[in-house]
């Protein structure tokens, strides 16, 4: 009974540290799109299966953001699923590579948690922030490397003035760490 929606066009992919950002052209309103299913593969042959499904969205963009600090290459095809359950043929394949994080070659001065695009090892994760941040961190986060515990002392999210649930105010986080000597050149920080 159902017919097949058209696949998306105009797909692009662009890498950054730890992630690849995809975008495509949004089609018209009929048939209504239930979602776009994003499939990813290391090889150019992207099989359409639950094993390759990395996410679904109704938006015209998707960030594949759990790729880790080492650069990786992925190929993507997008399947459009409409309101009746009809599935398009896959889009053209697009390809991109994430870029290398400085954490893979730099010398760590201090590290909180893991670079894994997840936050489960941090305080209030996975969903305690909106209820617990103000109670747990009334004066903001103040973390002393080597002494504080990421599981209780580093919030998995840091609200800003637009976050109503956190009182729409600025919050400060401090990460204190010790240097053996004063460095001659600047240092960088990365989150992830």
């Amino acid at each position: 009974m159902t017919t097949e929606p058209a696949p998306v066009t105009g797909a692009t992919a662009e890498g950054r540290t730890g992630a690849i950002d995809l975008s495509w052209d949004l089609p018209g309103w009929e048939p209504l799109v239930d979602h776009f299913a994003i499939h990813a593969s290391k090889s150019p042959e992207v099989e359409i299966s639950s094993a390759t499904l990395v996410g679904t969205t109704v938006y015209g963009r998707f960030s594949h953001d759990t790729l880790g600090p080492e650069p990786v290459t992925r190929h993507y095809r997008i399947v459009t699923v409409d309101a009746a359950g009809g599935r398009s043929t896959p889009s053209e394949t697009v390809r991109a590579s994430s870029t290398k994080s400085m954490t893979t070659y730099g010398r760590a001065l201090a590290q909180v948690g893991e670079f894994d695009s997840k936050s489960l090892e941090l305080a209030l994760a996975p969903a305690g922030g909106p209820r617990g941040f103000r109670a747990a961190f009334p004066d903001g986060v103040d973390f002393v490397h080597g002494r504080s515990d990421p599981g209780t002392d580093w919030s998995y999210l840091h609200p800003g003035p637009e976050d109503e649930w956190a009182g729409r105010t600025e919050h400060t986080f401090r990460l204190r760490f010790t240097l053996d000597t004063v460095p001659e050149a600047r240092s960088d920080s990365r989150s992830g």
Binding site: L26, W29, L32, V33, D34, H35, V58, Y59, G60, R61, A83
Partner: peptide, 10 residues
């Protein structure tokens, strides 16, 4: 808004 309206539609 373009993306959000997609969500509002569904």
């Amino acid at each position: 808004p373009e993306d959000f309206l997609r969500r509002r539609a569904v």
